[in-house]
């Protein structure tokens, strides 16, 4: 497996995770009529997952080819 295809596989898995997190039914768990830290939990949740997605994509794509088996 090359470094690129490894990244692609990870990103694809991340995509599937993101799709699950951003959709029913998990989404419905946060559709609550109150405030958490002064913010509606639905928005807090969506933006948190959003930040997580961005960080995860950044981390996965930025991992340099410093894994030992990549140098070959």
């Amino acid at each position: 497996m090359t470094a690129d295809s490894r990244k692609t596989a990870r990103l694809t898995a991340l995509f599937l995770l993101g799709w699950m997190l951003f959709n029913y039914p998990i989404l419905s768990l946060f559709s609550l009529n109150r405030l958490v830290f002064g913010i509606p939990p639905l928005y807090l949740y969506i933006f948190s997952v959003w930040v997580f997605m961005i960080l995860a994509v950044a981390l996965i794509t930025r991992i340099k080819e410093n894994m030992p088996d990549d140098r070959r």
């Binding site: 690129d4 692609t8 990103l11 694809t12 995509f15 993101g18 951003f22 969506i46 997605m53 994509v57």
Partner: peptide
């Protein structure tokens, strides 16, 4: 309500598939 966010969540997900 929150529906407007879908238009930007989609591209975020697509970005994960960007390399693919």
């Amino acid at each position: 309500g929150p529906g407007f966010l879908t238009i930007y969540i989609g591209p975020t997900l697509t970005a994960a598939l960007g390399l693919l």
